[in-house]
Nucleic acid binder design. Structure first.
Lengths: 204, 204, 204, 204
DNA sequence: TATGAATGAGTGTTCATTCAT
DNA sequence: AATGAATGAACACTCATTCAT
């Protein structure tokens, strides 16, 4: 086998394991995420998984970085469609909502990674997190300079609040979905829309 | 022993177990919450705990309802201090923040309850959740009638967004604390303040 | 069940586990000593063993202290039979030999416990070890005062060398038994006798 | 490739593996000795190692024979420096001590080989062990004929006791190091000196 | 009603060995 | 001859739950 083929195989094994891991994470949540389930789903031996990842936590760290990358990509794609800067921010709220409805499990993954015992290098995660923040900061700054966003909003804090509230609200709504349905016929989409209005009005 | 006395005993046993469970949850977090620790703290036998609660998860479900009750109480106390309605809402944001900083374990409790395997009926939780919503709805409605809150804000959705974003933002900030510290010297209090400004401006 | 009965039961469970552990240690050696084998031999569940001992290492620590206690007992019994002090020392050499022929596995147990990772409190072990040394020191001191042992022998070092060489020689012989048999018809008893002669002549 | 060349290659591959194995053993100890580390250090594939040695245990058996060879070499070099025969024996005691202080991993190797499951033929080990014994026997015999060693000492047993006690005492002292330090300020060098005195006086 | 000893399926992780290429 | 990806049985340890007393 040539080195190239071998590397390809190696990459596809990693992919295969990651894909299985993501499936398990989605199906069982972070609490139910076990290596046993991952290797069972990937139809490989336990040892094989540990050849490609040195621990369960490493797998989760990789997944979380990938998740953040996908989120950033969604933000960019959504914002690019709008020319108006408050509309861009509104679009970010919706992107966050849609992303996390599709990938709920990533939330708890983040809390899991925040445990003090979590030892894995999360450099990638931090880097992408930074890119995400830069992206939002940029929108706010430009929005301010164009007079679309009020200038007394501190850019950095505003950007973080934007980001935090987007994903925070979504997470909370997701986790309350069951209750919301029992209480009233609340549409999550409608709620996000109200939320986006409040935020955009709050910064205009 | 009369049925009444017996029922009283029964209730106090339940209380005793719940109090111990809350202590354990606060001390050890959701990860370290075990029935062994609960019965050890309550100074009762393992079997006794299972006479009053059919599973560990039932105990946690009850605790989560009690947590919500405490949160509502904090909301009420904080809002009562303000006469202005947007100020009341601002106060709710801060109450949520302070509550969850003091009782972090409840956050993870919520994620824990979100596991797909979690089977327990959470009727109490739903009921108190409803009270909380009524409380917020009331503030918005009255705020609107007094002209302090813009009338095109849909009450129900607005109220839920308020609630969701308060706790959602806090949770998100909490889970990002490490990264925030690495990136900039961001004070969580300052962020909550910016957030409260955005929300109150967004609804005025 | 009365507390007394319960405590008796509790003790016998501990005993049962320790007895099984000693059997496994003798059969499989320290390298092959696993909790799986212990509980299988004791015909109990894994969790039961961990109710009585907090770790595998704790079991081994207890066993090693018991072993040392038995050794001291053998030393005392053997030495008591002799009135002459060099004969007492000769008897110690033989006691050590016989003890370790019967309980080979304890040797490696000691090395195992000496690993830097070994975290269990070995207070009992150290205490009995001290008693053993006091016992030997006493014999040498009295032997010196009676003119049976040469006075230029430093008591403390002499005592330790005596102890160390007794058990050390036996351990080495044991581990070389296979080779010794293949090379010549060497009787281990004869070797110990020669050894005891050398030691007693060396200190007289 | 001629069979001779091939055999040479074969030999050097074996050597290469053994050298790597010895390095790993010294660096990581018997507990950390893994085939993964050996082949990584040797920069060969896993399968290759298994072409030249049928198991990990075979490698360790060969290493133990080589260790014995080094020990014999040390004995010879040390004894050659002395003309007096009791001094030669004293020198052997010290050589043994120094060897095992420098190469502690070999001790545990010996216990490892003593596991009941250890199945490998140790012919080489036995052969070198024999050479070592012949060397010591020779010293005692010549010492006796020169009147430096008492003639009632049985040569073969005496020689084995000498050898066994040297390494046995060292091993015992090593394993008790921690306790010795806790009890008194005992220097290992001082103890070996006392021991050597006892032995040489015991045979003179 | 209360007990608490016992259970055993499950956790993440390791590593000697194999075998198709 | 040489490779190295894959294996899977072990390992120490946990903890929610049960049930005979």
């Amino acid at each position: 086998m040539s080195p190239v083929t071998s590397e390809l195989h190696s990459m596809s094994r990693r992919q295969q394991i990651l894909t299985s891991a993501e499936t398990v994470l989605k199906d069982k949540g972070i609490e139910g995420f076990t290596m046993d389930l991952v290797v069972k789903h990937a139809e490989i031996a336990k040892g094989t998984a540990y050849k490609y990842f040195k621990s369960k936590d490493e797998i989760l760290a990789v997944i979380s970085a990938r998740a953040l990358e996908m989120l950033l990509h969604d933000f960019e794609k959504g914002a690019a469609k709008e020319s108006n800067y408050t509309a861009k921010i509104r679009s970010i709220c919706f992107s966050a909502y849609r992303f996390y409805v599709r990938h709920k499990a990533y939330w708890n993954l983040i809390s899991y990674m925040e445990r003090p015992e979590f030892e894995i290098d999360i450099k990638d995660y931090i880097r992408i997190s930074q890119e995400l923040q830069d992206f939002c900061e940029d929108i706010i700054e430009t929005g301010k300079s164009r007079g679309e966003i009020r200038t007394d909003l501190p850019t950095r804090e505003g950007q973080l609040v934007l980001w935090a509230s987007c994903v925070g609200v979504v997470q909370f709504l997701e986790s309350k979905k069951r209750i919301l349905r029992n209480v009233h016929n609340i549409s999550l989409e409608g709620m996000i829309s109200t939320y986006a209005d409040m935020i955009t009005k709050g910064i205009s």
